[in-house]
Nucleic acid binder design. Sequence first.
DNA 1: ATTTTGACGTA
DNA 2: CGTACGTCAAAATA
Length: 920
Amino acid sequence: MPPRLAPVTDHDALDAPADPEITAPAAASDAKLLLIDGHSMAFRAFFALPVENFATTDGQPTNAVYGFTSMLINLVRDEQPTHVFVAWDMSGPTFRTEQYAEYKGTRSAAPDEFKGQVPLIQEVLAALSIPHVGISGIEADDVLATLTDRAERQGAEVLVCSGDRDTFQLVTDRVTVLYPRKGVSDLVRMTPAAVEEKYGVPPGRYPDLAALVGETSDNLPGVPGVGPKTAAKWINAYDGLDGVVGSATAITGKAGESLRANLAQVIMNRQLNGLMRDVDTPLQLADLVRVPIDREAVHQVFDALQFRVLRDRLFDMLPKDEAGTAEDVEDLAVQVTDLVPGALAPWLAAREGQELGLDVAGTSAHGTGDAWALAIADGEGESLAIDLATIGDADLDVLGAWLADPAAAITVHDAKSTSHSLAGRGLVLAGVTLDTLLAAYLCHPDQRTYDLGDLTVRYLKRELPSGVDAASDGMLDLGLDGDSSGGRTAAARAVAVRELGEPLRADLATRGATALMGDVELPVLATLVDMERAGIAADVPYFTTLLNEFDAAVERAAAGAYEAIGRSVNLGSPKQLQEVLFDELGMPKTRKTKTGYTTDADALADLFARTEHPFLENLLAHREAIRLRQTVEGLLKSVSPDGRIHTTFQQTVAATGRLSSVDPNLQNIPIRTTEGYRIREGFVVGEGYEGLLTADYSQIEMRIMAHLSGDAGLIEAFRSGEDLHRYVGSRVFGVAPEDVTSAMRAKIKAMSYGLAYGLSAFGLSKQLGIGAGEARGLMDDYFERFGGVRDYLTGVVDDARQEGWTSTILDRRRYLPDLTSDNRQRREMAERMALNAPIQGSAADVVKVAMIGVSSQLRLRGLASRLLLQVHDELVLEVAPGEREEVTELVRAQMAAAADLSVPLDVSVGFGRSWRDAGH
DNA sequence: ATTTTGACGTA
DNA sequence: CGTACGTCAAAATA
């Protein structure tokens, strides 16, 4: 029976016109051919990705299609092959089964979920214009071997992607096998050296080795008692399998006996595992050249498969969208004019109503700053550089008025820092309509930095002129020779900022974040400027006393610890502690870390409970004391000359949308322990104010969860006004609310909060110190009563997997590509992030809206009270004399009204002379 | 000299 | 095998 081309052959793809974007290699020797064993890789993909997580809404499983396509996109992106081809196995007999009926006989039938996916993969390949063929009676590997030979003879480089080790025999200097180690994303490059290293024989003799050792997956038995080591030894000693067979009688020992008994099998193995290199197929290298994808078909197929994330990745990879390669990036065109006295007003007048870019060279920290130069750029690449050291009074007045004009329409990168810098020169920044830093953050909230130079390359395909991409507050800008080099630097940055406005606005719109930027992030930024500038008053004498006290406690604990073991060690060194605890004192080993065994507080407390060794007691006391001392020391160091501590709120670091606080971090001041709580007494009301007011949301994340899930029981819990955990506990345990014991309440509380973090039954049992069974039962009971919560939690992850992102009540997105990773660790991590991001992020949205409401009400009513701090669900204000009542009401009202949820937002307020007194 | 790790504070 | 952060000192690495 002559081999015939199978129906899956996609001749249309072969006939497609050459892609103008992909230039065919001038000679075959420049060609790079990617060959894929379709079934082998599809099968790997099927087992790498959990089938229950990958299905279209009508139930068609797609995990193999997804994994295969994902692998293909990655390979094409990373390897940049000029030619691609996929070979398929066909059902029915092959020359191997004819020769040996048991060939591959141990293979169980493919799962039903798998079978249907192969035609879908073929549809994807058709849309991608990738030729793919199955030939009856011939295995895919034989087709690949034949094409490998043909391509290699023409001087091409070949990559063979297959999970079948028989392909190792194809490896040469020009042929590399990509063999999946785990899943389909972790491919090992099998080069001649790699094969030799792993098996001890060159690639050409791999089939010799396999014939001796056997191949379980093909149902080819090897010689009993002969493993890869012995086989390699023989093959090398007798110059190949023929030599081994010929000298079989000369091989001594048990293994030799075994070999002689199985010679026939070995010889047949070798016949079967040798790949055919002369399959009769008309396919030539030239037929496999990459051609343009059929965009329309890709959209259709990917729509049907509901692959959103993959589609984006695919289109991102295509040459057309691939701009940003080094040779494409030119310098940004900038025309700089140094300010001539009197020229500012006409320059601005000529650009009345236009969006202008601003960049300021200066510094900022601790709620203040300085500026020495700035530049304003228009949309034509013209930039006006202004040296603030030499600017005349008239121009300064014009500049000040323009900056302070709310209608000025200014785009700037990092408006918060810029505001502080300008404030150092008495200038106010008001008319910011876009902050490119914030915009980049909203579009890519997981990124670590949003450097202006990087944005320029990414969005404009332009490079900032050399020496300019450093932040404008660098000392380089000082212009030591007295010229306005600070202004020159600012000039280029201002142009970049101005030009970034358009693509970033478009990107914000695409991602549904326009309103979030305009209504939340920019207004809250203005509030943060005021908060950072205000700072919070510190009671320095009190902190100093506290420092001494903690110091003494550190000494005491250290002395106690040294006495307990009869020598001194560095108590802050986990390494030395491990020596003491596990080697010297012989205590039971704790949980493992990368470098040994943990000495964290939990583990130490556990060890103390078991051994009651006084060293542990002192060590724990030392840990606490040294930490408190450290905290107080840090706070004292950060007190500004005005006697206040000015933290910096970071608006673009937390991927969920929260703020963070640095230098110092005022969002992690102790509160749980009584000793730690004393630190809050050092944060006090400032001169001229009446007291500090704290207002916090109670259980805001649980309320958000109730709202998002729409779970009737949970909503009712909040509406009833009953203690939440007591209410939930009564439902879960089936008792009256008043019969919920404190132990029951504690369990419920831990579980309720844990759910929002993706807590597992295992984690819950660990945390509560209960059995895994009890924890599992507790969770089952919980979900039994609050099924809406479970439906929400699973739904949110599934939706995120489909869409590629999660979103909050104000449409703040977090992108989680790892939801489709075939690495379980990464995937499950992303799943927990997907559970938490909408909850934590929505809470962050609500608090930001509240901050905007509070600060605008304070301003509208002409009150002197002011916001000082935000600690995620808590606001701290400084209240001016006589304003306490009005501010309390205003804060309550604004916070409660910050979001319209299906449950009330409960706010509790406290007042006092210190943060401690104001707490509750 | 700089980066990574372990530990630990907050929501 | 529970999310999001920042800070410090020690350890690891250059």
